[in-house]
């Protein structure tokens, strides 16, 4: 007998009455989700920017130290930053090593935890959100939802696909519970609400 059948049969030997699925609780409502998003983002170590258009955002980013210092960067957001690497020409994610900064589109933000949903389909290479040393995510204005419960109402997977919530920069507290920013992924995470 193959293992799949063996496992399923072992599980079926315990015949449980079906327990019903509960309704989801009514989640908290923040009066000003965008302000809450900014607060949450700061609390998880992120940097918050608010810009009316790409030009304004570009000048704001110029004042962000890791952006200003970046030797090599890529941007997938038109009019913001520059691309020193032709992403359409590479297929090996290892070539992303050495990038100092990446500017990527975020689909929406989540007010309760400062997370931004990054769709795999928007990235030519999945590693773009984690390999570059610093990260900026650009989220369209009006695209901030209240909680994760609201967030999953906006997400669907049909067949293959990748997506990730990014909430602030990479971090660890594995040495004596001391918080250190910049574990393996981005050393800083700037989120800009644009529009």
């Amino acid at each position: 007998m193959d293992s799949k059948r063996a496992i399923l049969e072992a599980l079926r030997r315990t015949d449980l009455p079906p327990a019903p699925l509960p309704p989801y609780p009514a989640p908290v409502r923040f009066a000003d989700p965008e302000r809450q998003f900014a607060e949450s983002l700061l609390s998880v170590g992120g940097r918050y920017l608010r810009a009316a258009d790409a030009a304004q955002l570009a000048s704001q980013l110029a004042a962000v130290e890791p952006f200003a210092r970046a030797g090599r960067m890529v941007s997938l957001v038109p009019g913001v930053g520059r691309s020193d690497l032709d992403l359409s020409a590479i297929s090996d994610p290892h070539q992303l090593e050495g990038l100092d900064f990446a500017v990527l589109p975020g689909a929406f933000g989540v007010a309760e935890n400062g997370a931004v949903w990054v769709e795999g389909a928007s990235l030519p290479l999945r590693a773009l959100f984690v390999v570059p040393q610093h990260l900026a995510l650009v989220v369209p204005a009006g695209a901030v939802v209240q909680t994760m419960q609201d967030a999953y109402e906006r997400i669907a997977f049909r067949g293959a696909g990748f997506g990730v919530f990014v909430s602030g920069p990479s971090k660890t507290a594995d040495i004596e519970q001391s918080l250190v920013i910049g574990a393996h992924g981005a050393r800083s995470c700037t989120v800009a609400i644009l529009g």
Binding site: S40, S43, V44, S91, V110, E112, N113, G114, A115, R126, V130, M148, F157, G159, A160, G161, F162, G163, V164, F165, V166, S167, G168, P169, S170, K171, A173, G185
Partner: peptide, 19 residues
């Protein structure tokens, strides 16, 4: 787990990366 509002990365994998 750690008193954070979310983990930094919550990654959803459906199928492999390209290739």
């Amino acid at each position: 787990a750690t008193g954070q509002p979310a983990t930094t990365y919550t990654s959803h994998f459906h199928g492999p990366m390209k290739g």
